[in-house]
Design a binder for these strands. Structure first.
Lengths: 192, 192
DNA sequence: ATCGTCATGTAACGTGTTACATGATTGT
DNA sequence: ACAATCATGTAACACGTTACATGACGAT
């Protein structure tokens, strides 16, 4: 009987769920993937192993000793149905304006994990929320921008411009991504 | 006699030092500034007040009760020489390739705090390190890019492109910033 | 008189870090 | 035989969060 899940999961926990969701992983493989990867979260053994046990206690993942295909026994964790629901809920959660500048890497990671877990339409819908977040942020900032830009120092002005440029880049990317996904053939045709 | 400073300061601590460095602040004003500001660090009272005491114990800041200009007594903290040295060292520290994608907001905050603490030349030099970081990241990624882009899935390709676009935006911004600062008149001339 | 804001603080809690420890297995 | 890697774990520690507590002041 699993523990009750009281608090919302950490971003780091969701990322681990995402990795496991793409393919079942051992603690060691998670650590090495995150060390060598594009992720900012340096997964130390001291955080991963207790976390895996915690998530297993809560019935979110379940570990199984793998002694068949590997000479060296490893404990492979996979998602339980509860874990799948949690992960997919996180992946589907819309991009919020507040997270545009500070959690972009998280958004990209979610986009990575989505590929194998969400339907085509859901990914498009998520990209729509992304663009809506940019729009509303843009709107709020643009009115503020005109006021603030006047009486700001040079550095403050440049920071405002940096965020504007940042948003524009993100908007362009979202549009590219959506177009690319929409043009994607439903199934890979015969090659060559 | 202040405690020895064992560990390196947290980013949050440096940000607080930056705020105090621009102008002496009370705990409350720090909290409100960070809540309303562009910063991702939600400064809760439970983090700020203990931190201020900690930094004071270490001789990095010093607080003084302000009962003269304010009806309501507040404790105003200012940097000690030790604190100034720490802050300026942090501000001068070069931008590293690893921090380009994950700590951009920190870089912009540093850029904000620099304005009143570093010389013109030092700011330019810091921008140079910024661009060098972009160059080296770009170099490493570009060789990887050509290899990886081939056998990557659509989502992986798009993530790679997102980071490339991101880097390009940052490079453009750095160049704009440097140009703007170099064209800046040394002193504001007479206005109107 | 009362409510909201200003202003500072404390206590419990949990997560992540650093450092250390252990042992099996592979390579040379 | 020995070193490096694979693989999992533990213990101490510290920071930050959440929630709670306190009181003075200003406005109505």
């Amino acid at each position: 009987m699993p523990e009750k899940i009281e608090r919302d999961l950490t971003t780091l926990e969701y990322v681990v769920l995402g990795l496991i969701g793409v393919e079942p992983q051992s603690g060691y493989s998670i650590i090495t993937m995150m060390e060598s990867g594009v992720h900012r979260w340096s997964a130390s053994p001291g955080s991963i192993y207790p976390m895996l046990k915690r998530l297993e206690r809560q019935g979110i993942i379940m570990g199984e000793l793998d002694i068949v295909y590997e000479t060296r026994p490893r404990k492979i964790y996979r998602l339980t149905p509860t874990g799948e629901a949690l992960l997919d809920g996180w992946l589907r959660s819309p991009v919020l304006p507040a997270s545009l500048l500070e959690e972009r890497d998280v958004a990209l990671l979610k986009f990575l994990f989505m590929e194998k877990r969400l339907s085509h339409e859901e990914v498009i819908a998520w990209l729509d929320t992304y663009e809506q977040a940019i729009d509303s942020y843009d709107l709020a900032r643009r009115t503020f921008y005109d006021m603030a830009i006047q009486q700001s120092s040079i550095h403050q002005q440049l920071i405002l411009e940096a965020t504007m440029m940042d948003l524009n880049t993100q908007r362009t990317w979202v549009q590219i991504a959506r177009r690319r996904l929409q043009n994607r053939p439903p199934r890979p045709a015969s090659n060559a």
